[in-house]
Design a protein around this nucleic acid. Structure first.
Length: 461
RNA sequence: GCUCCGAUGGUGUAGACAGGUCAAGCAUAUCGGCCUUUCAAGCCGACGACUCGGGUCCAAAUCCCGAUCGGAGCACCA
């Protein structure tokens, strides 16, 4: 591929983008920016029953937020006259006919390679029937426009396929202006040609559709773009359908499209994934036709590499246990916000004499009587009954002594919400007022802070 | 069942089109070590793969055939 390419992203506006969509978005964007050209966002809204009006806004926003540059937006429902025009042309040349069979009859006949009674009609008859069809003279399910292919084609799904049907649903954008809508295979072929696409990258699930669309290109004497089909990616865990999520939001199960538990672009960005992470991951995955499974390990590792240098460190104590430190001296310590980037500044912590501090229940329970630990950046303490005692010997060897983090007793309450739906409640260092965005809670993991909610979203370890 | 596609370590990939430099590179995960006042990052090391069987060839991960396994599609969805 070289020179000026024209490519497209063709989602249906049924909801915002999710993790799976970012692959086609990144790959197409990557090729366009690499070879120079134009990327078209084509919203495929020819099935009125499957449209979320808000998606017309959400999809371009999501793309912008992950750094995909769109040069032009095309909405298919605004191009109905074009589809009608091309349909009439194919009827005229005898490549399409109006079929009045019931759906199940048509299916049966096709499987047996038998022509239905409507297949052998004249273009003139079909023109009239098509006008009636788009003019609203048929009820839904009683008439379709069919592309005549080959009834003996070995692949039954390529035999005489449907190009137009009547939709019973009202279209959110065109209202009741249109009754007969093109099927995806028809509008895609017409638009791929009319928009001047040079290359199309799409999933392997479109393989049969490419073959169907090929008939339109042949009948019309159009040059076909180069089609590439990459393998399917299986996302581990439950894969939520957009319609289920929408219902969950309506029922209050999810806080919105950016709920921590979701794999939508908005949720992932909110948690702290970088646009560059999506790009790196998908570019590395490439265009192989093999099916693969998505690896959160690798995805997270790529993201960690991008955020680590700027993630300020803080202490978050989950399940805090208050413990008295007997003889602990009054102290004021300065701790770097990032161990390798002192230029990011220091945070200050102080405790009074014989203070009560907060440590994690897990760490407390792990301490046996008489064992010594280092309170990170503070001092050594030894367990004695239900309290800690300041050690006279403050030398310590990080190889042999366990280091735990801690907080002054008056630290504020804080919660971390996790993608699995659980939450960790605890206390946060007061210096959180100085930190924005993605932070690393030491010995815990990376999170993205939302101060106004007094909580953070868990990103990854 | 039919049509089409594919097969490299636990996972993701490079190499295949133009056979030799591949006793197979990289990343991630795991394990061990170093470093480190985080269970992070960094550094070093270990582990671990060409689905199987034929064929062509001096030479096959790479080309051909078959088997097996896996996937997608077979909607008046996109």
């Amino acid at each position: 591929m070289k020179g000026h390419v024209v490519m497209r992203l063709a989602p249906s506006p049924s909801g915002p983008l999710h993790l799976g969509h970012t692959r086609m978005a990144m790959l197409n964007d990557e090729y366009v920016s690499r070879y120079g050209g134009e990327l078209i966002l084509r919203l495929e809204d020819t099935n009125p029953a499957n449209i979320d009006p808000e998606a017309y806004e959400m999809i371009p926003q999501d793309l912008e937020n992950i750094g995909v540059k769109i040069h032009r937006v095309v909405i298919q429902s605004e191009r109905m006259e074009i589809y009608y025009e091309e349909a009439r042309r194919l009827i005229e040349s005898g490549h399409a006919y109006v079929c009045l069979c019931k759906a199940e009859d048509m299916r049966k006949l096709k499987l047996q390679s038998i022509a239905c009674p409507h297949r052998n009609t004249t273009p003139e008859q079909n023109e009239k029937l098509f006008d009636d069809m788009i003019g609203g003279k048929f009820t839904p399910g009683t008439a379709t426009l069919v592309i005549r292919t080959d009834l003996f084609h070995p692949n039954p799904s390529l035999r005489d396929w449907i190009a137009f049907r009547i939709s019973p649903a009202k279209h959110p954008r065109t209202g009741e202006k249109y009754y007969a809508f093109p099927m995806m295979n028809f509008s895609v072929a017409v638009d791929d040609h009319r928009l001047g696409l040079t290359h199309v990258l799409r999933g392997k699930d479109q393989l049969n559709n490419t073959d169907r669309q090929r008939f339109i290109f042949q009948y019309s004497n159009w040059q076909m773009p180069e089609y590439y089909h990459y393998g399917m990616i299986s996302l581990p865990g439950e894969k939520l359908k957009t319609s289920i999520i929408r219902k969950g939001i309506r029922d209050g199960k999810y806080s919105g499209w950016d709920d921590v538990r979701l794999n939508t672009v908005r949720a992932l960005l909110r948690r702290g994934y970088k646009p560059e992470t999506f790009r790196r991951y998908w570019v590395e995955s490439g265009l192989r036709e093999i099916d693969a499974s998505f690896s959160w390990d690798i995805f997270n590792s790529m993201n960690r590499e991008l955020i680590d240098g700027t993630s300020l460190r803080l202490f978050f104590v989950r399940d805090p246990v208050p413990v008295l430190v007997k003889n602990g001296p009054k102290s004021r310590v300065m701790i770097p916000f990032h161990p390798e980037h002192r230029e990011l500044g220091f945070r200050e912590m102080h405790v009074g004499g014989s203070p009560t501090i907060l440590i994690q229940a897990e760490d407390w329970n792990g301490m046996s009587e008489g064992s010594t630990v280092r309170l990170k950046d503070l001092y050594n303490v030894e367990r004695s009954g239900d309290q800690l005692v300041y050690k006279q010997n403050q030398e310590f060897n990080p190889k042999t002594m366990k280091i735990i983090h801690w907080l002054p007793e008056d630290s504020g309450e804080f919660t971390v919400l996790k993608p699995d739906g659980s939450r960790d409640d605890g206390r946060i260092e007061s210096n959180i007022t100085l930190v924005n965005g993605t932070s690393q809670f030491e010995r815990y993991g990376y999170v993205t802070i939302e101060k106004e909610r007094n909580s953070a979203l868990f990103l990854h370890r």
